[in-house]
């Protein structure tokens, strides 16, 4: 199987200036030398505590953020410098109520993003209808997004992430705010993508979701990989994945 994501000794620092007059520069090592590979068709989980560096990693992979050092390749291209070869083939979904135009309808949002993703006009209508159906927003598609509930906005986010039929989909806590039915819908979508041979990289704090979906995971802690393997391997003899995860985190925090 083909390697579609290749991360080697990847680092990212943030420089934060604090203090009003005496500028203190402190450096936050958000990602501190992580390595992992993801293969085509995999559902890959990125786990870790709040502030572990998951979102930062996803941002570097999605060409949003420049790495400080190390290797960060998607589909064989560098995410910083060769991003033009990557952007049309990937997409990402961030959890929460961000990333949509609230003063437009869902349909207008999707239409706009399909223009930005250079999707031919003759394909757009059908694709948008299908996606709206898929995320169960069809009835409200022409209402302004500002009248939507949190979960509906999240569904729209998911729809937007699918607009260019991406080969790799990055998801940062995509089930945040979804009701149980919505969360299951998303899991079904993810499985459907896998069945189509697509790759999904996701972060989540919901470990039962990880057990249900992920082929492989890495656990990051304070910017470093502390474990990598299949959910079963991580679980080992523990009663649940959660027990095993907590134990791992506690071990490294000692």
């Amino acid at each position: 199987m083909e390697k579609v994501i290749c991360v080697k000794d990847l680092k990212r620092e943030y420089h934060k200036k604090s203090g009003l007059f005496k500028k203190n520069k402190n450096i936050v090592k958000a990602v501190d030398g992580i390595s992992f590979d993801v293969y085509e068709g995999e559902i890959f989980g990125l786990l870790g505590q709040n502030g572990a560096g998951k979102t930062t990693t996803i941002k570097m992979l999605t060409t949003l953020l420049a790495p400080t050092s190390g290797q960060c390749q998607v589909l064989g291209y560098k995410t910083f410098g060769e991003e033009k070869n990557i952007r049309s083939k990937i997409n990402f979904i961030f959890g929460g109520e961000m990333g949509v135009y609230r003063r437009l309808s869902a349909r207008d949002n999707l239409r706009y993003f399909s223009n930005l993703y250079l999707i031919p006009a003759n394909l757009q209508k059908e694709r948008i209808d299908n996606i709206l159906e898929l995320v169960d927003l069809k009835d409200r598609a022409d209402d302004l997004v500002e009248t939507y509930s949190k979960g509906m906005i999240q569904r729209l986010q998911i729809a937007r992430g699918l607009i260019n039929d991406p080969e790799i989909l990055f998801m940062d806590e995509p089930t945040v705010g979804l009701d149980p039915v919505g969360a299951r819908m998303l899991r079904d979508i993810i499985r459907k993508l896998k069945a189509q041979g697509k790759t999904v990289l996701l972060t989540t704090h919901n470990l039962s979701e990880v057990e249900e979906l992920c082929d492989r995971v890495v656990i990051i802690n304070k910017g470093k990989v502390i474990y990598g393997g299949t959910p079963e391997e991580i679980k080992g003899d523990s009663l649940s994945l959660e027990d095993a995860y907590v134990k791992l985190i506690e071990e490294v925090s000692e």
């Binding site: 991003e83 990333g99 135009y101 993003f113 930005l116 250079l118 937007r160």
Partner: peptide, 18 residues
């Protein structure tokens, strides 16, 4: 602030055009 700046930035269309 609405999180769309990053979305339009990484879209395949060049940012200055948008």
């Amino acid at each position: 602030y609405s999180g769309t700046l990053s979305l339009i930035f990484v879209a395949p269309t060049s940012f200055p055009i948008i």
